[in-house]
């Protein structure tokens, strides 16, 4: 079972990113679950979402304690949250943008999702949309197939720029 934890701030789309990723995995004919940890819902507050992907039905509901991959949609969260907490040995990190922090030796990848969203004018209520480009980056990392990523995005969003954003992130992420 592959376990992923996504860190974002309320309103940035971390919860939707988890759902998109699960849907893409499902379109890859795998089993997947996606769920946020819900606290009091406040715009701008740190939010954690979880995704599990497996070849078999998933019967676990508790939070992910030892993820294999950590996704950070807003690097400023690293100042207040230990995002690496529980990351398995050999686990990976995907950041949005540059690498300002000590990642304690974990393999860390980065792609500028915010710039991609702004370039395509994917902005809702003043916030760049990060949940669709990040799926492209995760496809590049092999978590899901790119075909399924695009399928999942188009199932949930009618605006074609979302697929374009995923494709851009797929291109721009350097493994």
């Amino acid at each position: 079972m592959y376990e992923i934890r996504i860190h974002s701030r309320g309103g940035q789309g971390g919860v939707t990113a988890a759902k998109l990723l699960a849907l893409a995995a499902f379109r890859d004919h795998k089993y997947a679950t996606a769920f946020p940890f819900y606290g009091a819902e406040r715009r701008g507050a740190p939010v954690v979402s979880f995704v599990r992907i497996d070849e078999n039905p998933i019967r676990v509901y508790s939070q992910i304690k030892k993820p294999g991959l950590i996704v950070v949609l807003d690097n400023s969260i690293m100042e207040v949250v230990d995002v690496l907490h529980g990351l398995r040995p050999g686990g990976k990190v995907l950041l949005n943008g540059t690498l300002p922090h000590d990642m304690k030796g974990f393999q860390t990848l980065s792609v500028d999702l915010t710039t991609i969203a702004l370039r395509l004018n994917l902005v809702v209520a003043g916030s760049p949309i990060l949940n669709t480009p990040v799926i492209g980056a995760l496809a590049k990392m092999g978590i899901v197939s790119m075909d399924s990523a695009k399928l999942a995005i188009s199932e949930m969003f009618s605006d074609d720029r979302n697929v374009q954003a995923a494709e851009a992130a797929y291109m721009e992420l350097v493994l």
């Binding site: 089993y31 679950t33 996606a34 769920f35 819900y38 509901y61």
Partner: peptide, 10 residues
């Protein structure tokens, strides 16, 4: 609540 109401599954 939440653990099933808000989890995405197939």
């Amino acid at each position: 609540g939440f653990s099933l109401s808000h989890i995405n599954q197939s």
